[in-house]
């Protein structure tokens, strides 16, 4: 907020601007404290707006990039049932990306700007999607573990202080539940299948477990944005708290699958009433974040190609709309205007 005040003093009447700013901030702080929602046209601190755009953009980009590792298996799904499920799931991810882009745009950024920042590497997406999907079992592991971790993160976001983000998350969380269950069912089928299928399921869990734990972000004492986000009620729980919750949920689910988690350090801690687990390799996390993960370049290149190769479709749709708008007597193609309201 110091920066905002400094900017204000460069304007005409510094005293009056400061006073108005302070008054606005008081109203904003009171709304957040009272657990009210902040809506798009309300005054908000510049840093709150910037922080939300950063988080929502990263979230939207993750949904869109996240379509790639799973779409990789659509053509090789082992049955029509599994194929239809996977297509519906990938379509949902596109939908989630669109809900979130729309919500981010209420803060004054544009779709074009967000996509451009993704394509030029100026905004991030979740590191988890820089890992490859090597076998069919990975589709199950992503649904169960990756979507499971995402749900653990996202359920508290339904109560986020920014209204449009919270509303988008309510919709997303409802739909994510199917994603997680289909993944779990898929792994269960493999685990109870032939020894080779069982082994494939175990291998996928071994590879996705640690990256899934990293999805909760760095430990609390090393998290750059956590404290401020919690003060603004964008975040409701700390990274470590959510990670612990996820581990406690997964341990019994793993047993029911007939599989194991690749961490000999996991054991029930009677005293704390939760599971202990092993140390996370944060150097790997940092490397993937820096762009050195197995698929960083491939994911971004494919996204850029899809965008560029779709340009003619977007342009053609605009040309068609312009042509029809220019034609006298035609009111916007075939859609009928509403005759009576409510």
């Amino acid at each position: 907020m110091a920066a905002v005040t400094a900017d204000q003093t460069t304007q005409g009447t510094p005293g009056a601007a400061d006073a108005a700013e302070a008054e606005h901030l008081k109203v904003f702080d009171a709304a957040v404290a009272a657990d009210e929602r902040i809506e798009p046209r309300d005054w908000m601190p510049d840093a709150y707006r910037a922080s939300l755009i950063r988080q929502m953009a990263q979230h939207a980009h993750s949904e869109i990039i996240g379509m790639q590792p799973e779409a990789n298996w659509i053509s090789r799904a082992p049955s029509l049932r599994r194929k239809a499920i996977l297509m519906a799931k990938v379509q949902d991810e596109a939908g989630h990306g669109l809900y979130l882009y729309s919500a981010a745009e209420t803060l004054g950024t544009s779709r074009g700007e967000l996509l451009d920042k993704l394509h030029t590497g100026r905004q991030r997406y979740s590191s988890i999607f820089n890992y490859p999907t090597l076998t069919w079992a990975d589709v199950g592991a992503i649904g169960w573990l990756v979507d499971g971790a995402a749900i653990t993160n996202q359920v508290p976001l339904c109560r986020c202080s920014y209204g449009p983000y919270a509303r988008a998350m309510v919709r997303i969380c409802k739909e994510e539940s199917f994603h997680q269950r289909q993944g779990y069912e898929l792994l269960l089928a493999l685990s109870r299948g032939t020894p080779a299928q069982h082994e494939m399921a175990q291998d996928a869990v071994n590879r996705w477990w640690w990256p899934s734990l990293m999805m909760f972000g760095p430990p609390d004492d090393a998290s750059a944005h956590s404290a401020q986000s919690m003060a603004w009620k964008i975040k409701r729980h700390s990274n470590d708290e959510l990670r612990q919750r996820f581990v406690d949920i997964c341990v019994p689910q793993t047993e029911a699958l007939g599989l194991t988690l690749p961490d000999p350090g996991i054991r029930w801690n009677e005293e704390l009433g939760q599971h202990d687990f092993g140390a996370i390799d944060w150097t790997e996390f940092q490397e993937v974040l820096k762009g050195n993960g197995p698929c960083n370049e491939q994911r971004l290149a494919q996204r850029r190609t899809a965008h560029e190769e779709g340009a003619w479709v977007r342009d053609a749709a605009v040309a068609y709309a312009d042509k029809h708008a220019a034609r006298p007597g035609s009111s916007g193609a075939a859609a009928r205007p509403v005759e009576a309201s409510s």
């Binding site: 809900y99 729309s102 745009e105 988008a168 749709a317 605009v318 193609a333 075939a334 859609a335």
Partner: peptide, 22 residues
């Protein structure tokens, strides 16, 4: 919610795919 579309007809179709998948 909201969405982007070039014209009203496409907006309706996009809305169907985006907000009524279930």
């Amino acid at each position: 919610g909201s969405l982007h579309a070039p014209d009203a007809e496409m907006a309706l179709r996009n809305a169907r795919d985006l907000y009524t998948r279930r």
